[in-house]
């Protein structure tokens, strides 16, 4: 839901002349809404600017966002960063797994 909120704000800023880039990890929500520029990192939700305390990765992801501010020539420009969360990827299945115990990801 955070991804939808910032997508709507980005669209409003763009419509009034401010260039934007979203750094995020929920690709479908951002692209469904439609934004000017999007840097997608295929991580579990929570660290869209890089793994905690990994300064080099964070610098690379933010840097890609800055690059995209300059290089995009049309809306809906998505760049995917090269980073992989882990070789084993159970987090993909854990999100809202359908089971009697309820959602695996706390909501609020």
């Amino acid at each position: 839901m955070c991804h939808q909120t910032v997508s709507l704000v980005a669209r409003h800023l763009e419509a009034h002349g401010i260039a934007t880039v979203i750094l995020g990890s929920a690709r479908d929500i951002v692209e469904h809404c439609g934004v000017a520029r999007f840097v997608f990192t295929d991580f579990p939700l929570g660290n869209p600017c890089g793994k905690p305390c990994d300064v080099a990765m964070q610098r690379a992801i933010v840097g890609l966002g800055l690059d995209l501010l300059e290089s995009a020539r049309a809306p809906r420009t998505t760049v995917q960063t090269p980073f992989v969360w882990s070789e084993e990827q159970p987090w993909r299945d854990n999100y809202m797994r359908i089971e009697p115990a309820g959602p695996s990801v706390a909501t609020s």
């Binding site: 929570g46 660290n47 600017c49 905690p52 300064v55 969360w85 987090w91 609020s108």
Partner: peptide
Amino acid sequence: LFWDRLATHTEDLDSFFPVHRLEEF
């Protein structure tokens, strides 16, 4: 907020609010 509490944490501000990375740039 929705984020994956099983996979990660948000104790490093710059992992979601990269103020120090921006200051470096």
